[in-house]
């Protein structure tokens, strides 16, 4: 009973806040609406007995939305909470596409005769996840880890203002031009 009440409350929060992201007229409000929607989904993942994943979703999304808010203040050059905005194109087609997708998915969810549950969950799902990641599913960890490192490197390379490729050319063999650098830096090239 308690679980059902929490589930339905979180369902309403997740959907209303998710829709609010594209309805409210400021980016700051949209960011916090999305954060709330994610927290609601995180709580539902907790209700589905995936303690670790649920907590990760909540923590990660709250931090991510905080970063996003800072990002918007940085780049939009305005106080995003005070700036009304509506920047959409093809609204009608987008609404139609989204409606068709929802109806198709909902029909699938309701009409497919889902099988009954196979197997029983372990008593401590977090421990089971840890043992899977460090045991039989270690390949997943060994693949995700380099992907994360590559993401960090790629993010910095894409976003950095003036890298060694700008100074030394694509093959890194050009003459160093430090004229546009605020500080010379480097290792004496």
């Amino acid at each position: 009973m308690f679980v059902d009440v929490v589930f339905w409350v979180m369902t309403v929060v997740a959907v209303v806040m998710g829709a609010a992201v594209f309805v409210v007229d400021s980016m700051a409000r949209a960011t916090y609406a999305l954060a709330l929607s994610f927290v609601a989904v995180g709580v539902q993942v907790l209700l589905l007995h995936q303690d670790y994943v649920g907590v990760i979703v909540i923590l990660m999304m709250v931090m991510e939305m905080a970063v996003m808010a800072v990002y918007m203040v940085m780049f939009m050059g305005m106080n995003p909470a005070l700036m009304p905005m509506s920047m959409v194109h093809d609204k009608r087609k987008a609404l139609a596409a989204a409606s068709v997708v929802f109806l198709t998915l909902a029909a699938g969810a309701l009409l497919i005769p889902w099988p009954t549950r196979r197997g029983q969950p372990s008593s401590d799902t977090t421990r089971a996840l840890g043992e899977a990641l460090m045991g039989s599913k270690m390949l997943v960890m060994t693949v995700v880890s380099p992907v994360m490192v590559a993401t960090i490197v790629a993010g910095i390379v894409i976003a950095s203002k003036r890298s060694r490729y700008d100074r030394l050319g694509d093959d890194l063999r050009g003459a160093a031009d430090h004229s546009a650098d605020p500080q010379r830096g480097g290792v004496g090239r």
């Binding site: 959907v15 998710g18 829709a19 539902q44 093809d90 596409a97 997708v101 929802f102 998915l105 909902a106």
Partner: peptide
Amino acid sequence: LLLAAALFSIGLYGAIS
């Protein structure tokens, strides 16, 4: 699954529009 479909569709609307 219904809730997941709703979230997915709302996101799709936003990503397109």
